[in-house]
């Protein structure tokens, strides 16, 4: 009998605090698998943000540091510059990366910092209770846009994977999602590629994961996946926006 599926050994026994139907658990697991499969346990350093993934330091048996809201790319810059041999992962949500930390992520990309950003975009502030994010869809109802997001006050959603791809310091930028097993496999391939580029010393590698937040969206998990597949992805199209590695080949 062979084992075809197991919990990554890089995980601790800690109980994951994510809500039912949340994408973080899947994304965490895929990253855990990649670290284990590539033997990066002693090289990986996570920089966790403030957001729903703030407790993820307890889930992984790898080094980690929790950053202030938005500042993960600056902390990751310090960690990676001081220990360039390590696999440094800045794991950030959309409120964190697109709002509070817009300056830090943009300038990390501008400098071509050699770490990987896993950007979890669920179009809402999850941890603080479902407020509007810069990534919230037009017309979407949140606790701070109770009548729907309106252009007059908030402008339009921000497409980070495309913006980051446009910066010369970015080496690789792709947007993926977690709504189907097929897309989860594509996500794993994308994150793997980003990690490999990082270990080759390439510039900023950026993977945006469009992810459901049933609690913040006030939907049942199944409905949340449907809405993600129908609406969210039309605002945030999947695909590779930059892959300098492919161009070099």
């Amino acid at each position: 009998m062979s084992i075809v599926y197991k919990r990554p050994e890089v995980f601790t026994d800690e109980y994951m605090k994510y809500c039912g139907g949340c994408g973080h658990g899947i994304i965490n697991k895929v990253i855990g698998e990649l670290i284990e499969e590539n033997n990066w346990q002693e090289k990986a350093v996570f920089v966790w943000p403030i957001g729903c993934s703030v407790y993820a330091d307890k889930y992984f048996k790898v080094d980690s540091i929790c950053a202030l809201h938005g500042r993960a790319p600056a902390v990751a810059t310090g960690v990676k510059r001081a220990t360039p041999e390590n696999l440094v992962i800045s794991y950030q949500g959309d409120g964190d990366l697109v709002s509070e930390g817009m300056s830090e992520i943009m300038h990390s990309a501008i400098r071509g910092e050699k770490f990987t950003v896993v950007f979890v975009n669920n179009a809402i502030y999850g941890m603080t209770g479902g407020q509007m994010a810069p990534t919230t869809l037009m017309g979407q109802h949140t606790t701070t846009s109770p009548y729907g997001r309106a252009e007059e006050f908030t402008g339009h959603p921000v497409n980070m994977a495309e913006i980051i791809a446009g910066i010369p310091g970015c080496y690789y930028s792709e947007r993926v999602t977690v709504n189907t097993p097929g897309n989860i496999r594509k996500m794993k391939a994308a994150i793997k590629k980003a990690f490999e580029y990082q270990m080759e010393g390439k510039g900023l590698t950026f993977v945006e994961v469009v992810s459901p937040c049933p609690t913040g969206w006030n939907m049942k998990p199944v409905k949340a996946l449907e809405w993600l597949s129908e609406s969210v992805i039309s605002t945030y199209p999947l695909g590779v926006f930059k892959d300098l590695g492919k161009e070099e080949k």
Partner: peptide, 19 residues
Amino acid sequence: IQAETEVAAFNMIAGVAAT
């Protein structure tokens, strides 16, 4: 590194100190 802001500079120092 000439940081983009002091906010970033202080957090970069935090990253180095953490190592």
